[in-house]
Computed example of a mutant assay.
Amino acid sequence: MVCTRKTKTLVSTCVILSGMTNIICLLYVGWVTNYIASVYVRGQEPAPDKKLEEDKGDTLKIIERLDHLENVIKQHIQEAPAKPEEAEAEPFTDSSLFAHWGQELSPEGRRMALKQFQYYGYNAYLSDRLPLDRPLPDLRPSGCRNLSFPASLPEVSIVFIFVNEALSVLLRSIHSAMERTPSHLLKEIILVDDNSSNEELKEKLTEYVDKVNGQKPGFIKVVRHSKQEGLIRSRVSGWRAATAPVVALFDAHVEFNVGWAEPVLTRIKENRKRIISPSFDNIKYDNFEIEEYPLAAQGFDWELWCRYLNPPKAWWKLENSTAPIRSPALIGCFIVDRQYFQEIGLLDEGMEVYGGENVELGIRWPLKS
C-alpha cells in the first residue's frame, strides 16, 4: 500500500497529539495523587487484609498500601506496644486466636493468652508451653530424602535478628538450628538484638547463652544495639560478626528441619555467586501447627510486595521436584557466601522500611546461577 504525504502528516500529527495527551494524563494523575494523599486518603482508615475492589485505580491502591504500611511502622517501631503484663486485653470471645485453639482454657488463661497475642502477634502463650525440641513433619519432596552431597562442604554462621521476640520462640529457633544442622557444618550462631526492651531477652537469654557456651566456648555470639537500627542494618551487623565462609541470615521466629543445610551449601560450593533462599512452610500463628506451602518461586508485584510465584516453565520441564527454582527475588531470609556478599555491597544500609531487601539484590545486581 502506498502512503501519500497527506496520510503521513496525519499519522505524525496523531502520534504527537497522543504523546501530549499521555504527558497531560501523567501530570494530572500526579496532581490527583498528591491531592488524595494530603486531603482524602489520610483521613480514612484503610481496611487491612481486605482485597481492594478491582475497579479502583492503581494510584489509589498504592497510596492506601503505603498509608497502611506507615501506620504499621509507627505502631511496631516508633510506638512500641505495651508489654504483655501491662496491656489490657480486648474482649476475647471473638478473637481469631481462639478460632481453632484454646477452647479448653479458663477465662483467666484466655486473658493471658490474648494479652501475649496482642503484644507479639502470635500465640506466645502456647509457644511457652511447647518443648524446644518438638518434632516437625518432614515435608520435603520424597526425592530430596535420597540425595547425596559432597563430603566436604563450607561451614556456615547462622544469624538471627530480633527485637522484642518471645523468648521461647527465639530459643526454639536457636535450638532447632543446633539440633538439625550437622555439627561439622555449623560454626557459630550470632544473635543480633536490635535494642529490645523485653527484660526476658536480657537476663534469661544471657543465662541460656552462657550455658551453651559453657559446653562449646564462643559458639553463640550476642550483638546488642544501643539504639534500634532496623532490619537491614541488623542483618549487616550479624554479617560483620560472622566468621564462617557462608552466612545464613534468618528471622528469629523460624524452626529448622532436617536436611536443610546440605543442599544450600552444595549450591554455594558449586558457585559462590549464588544467593540461596530456602524453601519455607508456615508455622500457624494461633496453634503453631505446620502448614505445608507448595514449591514456588519468590517474586514481587508492581508495588514491590513479596509474592509467591508458580515456578517457571523451564523448571517444570525438568520433571524433578528436587531441582532448585530460579527466582527474581528473595524472601528476607537467605544464605550467601560471606566474601561475595561484601563484594556486591551487602544490603543497602540506608533502607528504613521493611520489605526492601526482598527485591534489592535482584534489581540492582544481575545474579547468575
Rank of each mutant, 00 (worst) to 15 (best):
C3N: 05
R5E: 15
T9F: 12
L10A: 12
L17F: 15
S18K: 01
I23D: 05
I24A: 14
C25Y: 13
L27E: 08
V32L: 15
N34V: 13
N34P: 00
Y35P: 00
I36H: 09
V41F: 09
R42I: 12
K51W: 03
L52I: 14
L52F: 14
E53C: 11
E53M: 13
I63Y: 04
R65G: 08
L69G: 13
V72D: 07
I77T: 11
I77C: 04
Q78N: 14
E79H: 11
P84D: 09
E88A: 09
D94R: 09
S95M: 05
S96V: 13
F98I: 10
W101K: 06
W101G: 02
E108L: 08
G109Q: 13
R110M: 10
R111T: 13
R111G: 00
M112A: 13
A113M: 01
F117W: 13
Q118H: 07
G121S: 04
N123V: 07
S127I: 07
L139M: 12
R140Y: 08
C144Y: 07
R145W: 05
L147S: 03
S152P: 00
S157G: 05
V163T: 07
N164V: 04
L167K: 05
S168Y: 01
R172P: 00
I174N: 06
A177W: 04
E179Q: 14
R180A: 02
R180D: 06
S183V: 09
I189E: 01
V192S: 04
N195W: 09
E200Q: 12
E203I: 10
E203W: 09
E207A: 13
D210K: 15
F219S: 00
F219H: 02
I220G: 00
I220L: 03
K221T: 07
K221V: 03
R224H: 02
L231A: 08
S234T: 05
R235Q: 12
V236K: 02
S237Q: 02
G238T: 03
W239F: 07
W239M: 07
R240H: 12
A241M: 10
A242Y: 07
V246H: 07
F250L: 11
D251R: 04
V258A: 10
G259V: 05
W260R: 05
P263M: 06
L265T: 04
K269R: 11
K273P: 00
S279Y: 08
N282T: 10
I283E: 08
K284T: 06
E289P: 01
E292L: 08
E303R: 14
N310T: 13
N310E: 14
N310F: 08
P312M: 10
A314D: 12
K317A: 12
E319K: 15
S321P: 00
A323Q: 02
A329G: 11
I331V: 12
Y340K: 06
I344E: 05
L347D: 10
N358P: 00
R364H: 09
W365G: 02
L367N: 05
